[in-house]
Structure formats: structure tokens, C-alpha cells
Amino acid sequence: MTNGLISGIALAILMLGSALALRYAENAGAIGADDARRAIQVLIGLMLAGYANLMPKRGRGVGSLLAQARVQTALRIGGWSLTMAGLAYAGLWAFAPLEIADTAGLFAVAAATLLTLGYAVWAFTACRRDRGTSTSR
């Protein structure tokens, strides 16, 4: 737990430091406001991809073997879809026009979130349904 807390604090300091550095560069005239916005959004997308990539590694073995398998599958699907969404978000903010990056980036993350939640709900209701039918036999 301490290792995760330290890395989380380090990433927060990195994000705040990056935002401050970008603001300073913008005020100094080294970069424009759009460039600073793009850079921070790219960092947000990369952090989403990084955290999502860690999702499957944080699963716990609680419940039946079927429940554990479904939890792990839900974590893998969530990790995969949110990692891809984070990379798409970063890529859009790096290269697409601002209006497209804003809308398409939001759509990519929302679609990945809905896919993750939808699969998790389906898997857990299927697990409950399977458990209910196996106890009645």
C-alpha cells in the first residue's frame, strides 16, 4: 500500500510540476495557450493509459473460482479498453485539431468506460445467476 501511495504522490507532483512549467512557458511567450493545453491533455491521456495498464494486476482472489475468473476478465477488458482510450486521447490531443481532439477524446474515454462497466455488470450478474442455479439443483 505504501508503494502505491508513494508512486501516486510522485505522479501528482509530476502533473502539478508539468502544469506549472507549461504555465511558466506560456507566460514567458515560449509556447502558446493552445500548446500548453495540448501538452497537459497529452499527459492526462498517457497517465490514464498507464493506470489502466495496471488494472489487471490489482485483482484480488475473493469468492468462487468462477467469480475470480470473471473479475480477472473484467479487469483485463477494462485495462485493455481504457489503455487504448488513454493512448487515443493522447494521440488526438497531440495531432488533431482542438475541436476534434476535445470531442473525439471525450468519446474515446466514455466508450471505454461504458464497455468496462457494461462487461463488469454482465459478468457479475451472470455469476450471480450461475450461483443461484447451481445451489437450487
Rank of each mutant, 00 (worst) to 15 (best):
L11F: 13
L54Q: 01
A88N: 01
G79I: 04
W93V: 02
L22W: 11
S64R: 03
L20K: 07
R38T: 10
G61Y: 04
G59F: 15
L106Q: 05
A19K: 06
A108W: 07
T2S: 08
W93C: 00
A39N: 04
N27Q: 15
R131K: 11
D34G: 05
D102R: 10
T103Y: 08
A10E: 09
Y51A: 14
L117H: 04
F107S: 02
R60D: 03
T83S: 10
A126V: 04
A36G: 02
A74T: 08
A108D: 04
G79M: 11
A112C: 07
R129E: 13
I44L: 10
Y89W: 10
Q72L: 11
V42Q: 03
M84V: 13
G105S: 07
G91R: 00
G32Y: 10
L22E: 01
D102I: 01
G45F: 08
A10D: 06
L14S: 05
A112Q: 06
R137N: 12
L20H: 11
M55V: 13
D130H: 14
A67R: 15
V121M: 11
A30Y: 05
A19L: 10
A69C: 07
I77M: 01
L11E: 05
C127F: 15
I44R: 01
G63S: 07
L11C: 06
G78C: 00
F107T: 01
L65M: 02
Y51R: 11
N3T: 13
V109G: 08
T103C: 06
G105C: 05
V121F: 14
G59K: 13
S7M: 13
V121C: 05
I31M: 07
L66M: 06
Y24R: 15
M55K: 13
G86F: 00
A112D: 08
G86T: 00
A110H: 00
Q72H: 13
A108G: 06
V121Q: 09
R70L: 09
Q72I: 06
L75N: 09
